[in-house]
């Protein structure tokens, strides 16, 4: 007999997820609407999304062999099924606020160009603001952590500034800076810079004294100490903190976009909110969720690849 790829027990769970997936597809295709006021949307986009989710899950469960993958898939398909049934049975009173799943995913067929542009815009803002903040935060944190005089100047300042939520002064930044783009980058920058800076100062101060002493006896000077000893020693900590700051940055980004920057996925959500098109708002939110998840997974992968030792 051919060997199974997974345990027998995991195939039971896999089968359950597959049945739920098939049921969702059949419901979308063949179940009639049992209410009077309803909006028809072509179910194509929804079915494509379902299939995509199922394909990802199939690949995921075979690669990671995690039981939780099946659990997540079952929960997701059950949720969509309840939603679909509730809508088609007419349990949803307000068509405008709660669209059908078909309707939600149809948005991606209606305006793919617009969503794509907004996503790209968001990612660009994120990249610049985030990248610069990590770079400067780490570098200045390194200096402040190692050189007491620098620390005594910068640390009190950062302690005051980090008490103010970054979104509070972003309204002001948007007025001051020439373009929305710059303002958004600045908002993200300040949201990430100070925590990165403080984290780095803390990491440098916790460094193992014996390592520093060993380096000193080998004739390592100040510059060498900063870049050949302390920086590599702190690198795992820096990389670990990146995925955390990335989430904060993304929240700030969508927040900043909603404050009036006319570009990005946050702006997309805000715009359709004012048109009272909640179908598009929900589609925007789903997009944000998918993007954050993808970035998160990518960063975690990079993290595991880069850290080959643990302190």
């Amino acid at each position: 007999m051919k060997r199974l790829l997974l345990d027998r027990k995991m195939y039971v769970e896999f089968a359950l997820a597959a049945v739920l997936f098939a049921a969702n597809v059949l419901l979308a295709l063949f179940m009639p609407y049992l209410t009077e006021h309803k909006r028809y949307y072509d179910s194509g986009a929804y079915i494509v999304m379902l299939s995509l989710a199922f394909a990802l899950y199939t690949a995921g469960v075979h690669v990671t062999r995690k039981k939780s993958a099946s659990d997540i898939a079952v929960v997701l398909f059950l949720f969509l099924m309840v939603w679909e049934l509730a809508y088609k049975f007419g349990a949803v009173q307000n068509d405008l606020l709660v669209p059908s799943p078909e309707g939600l995913f149809h948005v991606f067929v209606e305006k793919p160009e617009e969503i794509w542009q907004d996503v790209l815009g968001s990612l660009q803002l994120l990249f610049w603001g985030f990248f610069l903040a990590i770079l400067f935060g780490t570098f200045l944190g390194l200096l402040a952590g190692w050189i007491p005089r620098v620390r005594e100047v910068l640390l009190p300042i950062s302690n005051v500034i980090t008490l103010i939520p970054p979104l509070m002064f972003s309204a002001y930044l948007i007025m001051v800076l020439a373009t929305f783009r710059e303002a958004a980058i600045a908002v993200i920058f300040f949201a990430v810079f100070w925590p990165t800076f403080q984290g780095m100062v803390a990491r440098v101060s916790q460094i193992d004294k014996a390592v520093i002493e060993a380096a000193r006896t080998m004739g390592v000077g100040t510059v060498g100490m900063l870049f050949k000893v302390i920086l590599p020693y702190c690198l795992p900590g820096i990389i670990k903190s990146i995925s955390k700051s990335l989430r904060g940055a993304f929240m700030c980004l969508t927040g900043a976009e909603m404050l009036g920057i006319n570009l990005g996925i946050g702006y997309f959500i805000e715009k359709y909110k004012s048109f009272a098109d909640y179908r598009c708002v929900l589609a925007g939110i789903v997009t944000v969720g998918v993007i954050t998840t993808v970035i998160d997974i990518a960063v975690n992968k990079a993290e595991r690849a880069m850290i080959r030792w643990e302190a």
Binding site: D208, A210, V211, E213, A214, A215, T217, V229, P232, Y233, L235, W309, E310, A311
Partner: peptide
Amino acid sequence: VVFQQYSLFPW
């Protein structure tokens, strides 16, 4: 120097 507590560079 060889220190009593080794002090190698862990990275």
